[in-house]
């Protein structure tokens, strides 16, 4: 059985997340901001009785910023890492597909943000997709880049 991938779009690009790591997909409404937190931490949200730390994937990649105050609904993928729950805010969650290949190195030059989170390229029925490392997205940009 091949690895399942969750196709999402971040900053207009379609990429894949390892579906096994994603607990659920939710719709975010109001966020509680965390003052002085790193830029890519968009705020806190509650999923039932758990507190979710919301990571804005666009900001983490340095590709813009999602605004949460516009009243629109934002989709996010919920993951748990070391006992903490995170919601990765993306433009849209599209589909779950099977990976048809192992991730392979991307030989073309990617943007700086993408380069950092890339786990390689995987073939799917919908064509090649970039496999994104969830850990790298959560840890955000190195401090130097953020400054």
């Amino acid at each position: 059985m091949n690895e399942l991938l969750l196709i999402v779009s971040i900053a207009g690009s379609r990429v894949a997340l390892p579906a096994a790591q994603v607990e659920s997909v939710i719709e975010l409404d109001a966020l509680i901001p965390v003052p002085r937190a790193p830029h890519h931490v968009a705020g806190l949200s509650a999923l039932r009785s758990r507190v979710l730390t919301v990571i804005d994937c666009q900001r983490s990649l340095g590709l813009g910023e999602t605004t949460f105050e516009d009243g629109r609904i934002h989709e996010a993928a919920v993951v748990e890492i070391e006992g903490h729950h995170y919601a990765l805010s993306v433009d849209a969650v599209e589909d779950v597909v099977e990976a048809l290949s192992e991730p392979k190195e991307v030989r073309a030059a990617m943007g700086e943000g993408w380069e950092r989170v890339s786990k390689g390229m995987v073939e799917t029925e919908e064509g090649p997709l970039l496999l994104v490392s969830i850990d790298a997205v959560i840890s955000g940009q190195p401090q130097v880049a953020a400054a």
């Binding site: 509680i32 790193p38 931490v41 509650a46 903490h84 959560i138 955000g140």
Partner: peptide, 27 residues
């Protein structure tokens, strides 16, 4: 009170997070 994510604790300002009665998070 529960510990917050490392990125949040890293600010040095917070001891944790908690949920208010209405279900919204409080730092």
């Amino acid at each position: 009170v529960k510990p917050a994510a490392p990125a949040v604790m890293g600010t040095g300002l917070y001891a944790g997070t908690t949920l208010a009665d209405d279900g919204s998070p409080i730092l």
